[in-house]
Amino acid sequence: MSAMREAVTGTYLDSFLYTIKLSALSALLGAICGALLTAAVMRVERPAWARQVVSSFAGVAANLGGIPLAFAFLATLGTQGLVTKALSWFGMDLVGAGFTISNFAGITVVYLYFQIPLMFLVTLPAFEGLRPTWREAAANLGASPTRYWRHVGLPILAPSLLGGFLLLFANAFSAYATAYALSSGGARLIPVQIRFFLQGNTITGKDNLGYAMAAWMIIIMVAVMGAYLLFRRRSEQWQP
C-alpha cells in the first residue's frame, strides 16, 4: 500500500495534476468547439450530404491518434512546421510566445484533433433529438432564440454535453502514443511516466510505483466513465 501512497506524493502528484489539468483543458476546449461544430452542422440543410460527410470524417478523426497524428502536427506546428513558418512571415513568433508542440499548450492543441470530432459524434444524437417543434413553439410564444436556448435547448442538451466532457476527459487521460511521439518520451504525463517505471526495472523496488500509478489511473477512469454512463442514460431519454 505504501506504493499507492507514494504514487500520489511529491513529483508524482505533480505529474498526476499535470495530466489531469491537460485532460480537463483539452476536454473543455474540445467540448465547447465540438458542441459549436455540431450546432453549426445542424443548421446546414443543404447540401443534404454535408452532414453525412462531416459525420464520416468525424468518425475517422475521432479514432485517429498515435504516431501519425503526432507527425502531422510536427509538420504543421513544430519548429519547422508549415504554419509556424507561415506565421513567422507575418511577424508572429509562435516559439517566442511560449508555444512548443511538446509543451502543455501544444499537446492540448494536438489532442483537440481527436477531441472535437469525438464530441461531435457524442452530441449529434442529442442535437438531433431537439425537435424543431419546440423551437417553433417557443418562437410562437414570443421567445427570442437566446431565451429558447437558455430555457429549452441547453437544459435538454446539458446531460449529453456534460457526459461528452467526461468522455473527452477520459479519452485524453488515457492517451499515450501521441504525447510520447510529440515529446520523445520526456513528457510529464502519467502514461509516459508509467512506461519509465515499467522499463526501468533496474531501480529495485520502484517498479511497484508503476503498478500503483496504473491503479490510480484506473480508479480515476472508473469514476469518470461511471459518471459518463449516468449522464448518457439521462441524455437518451429525449432521443427518438
Binding site: A170, S174, Y176, P191, I194, Y211, A214, M217, M221, M225
Partner: peptide
C-alpha cells in the same frame, strides 16, 4: 474505455 491501454499492459 475504462482501462487505458497503458494500464492494461502494465
Amino acid at each position: 474505455y475504462v482501462v487505458p491501454p497503458i494500464a492494461l499492459v502494465v
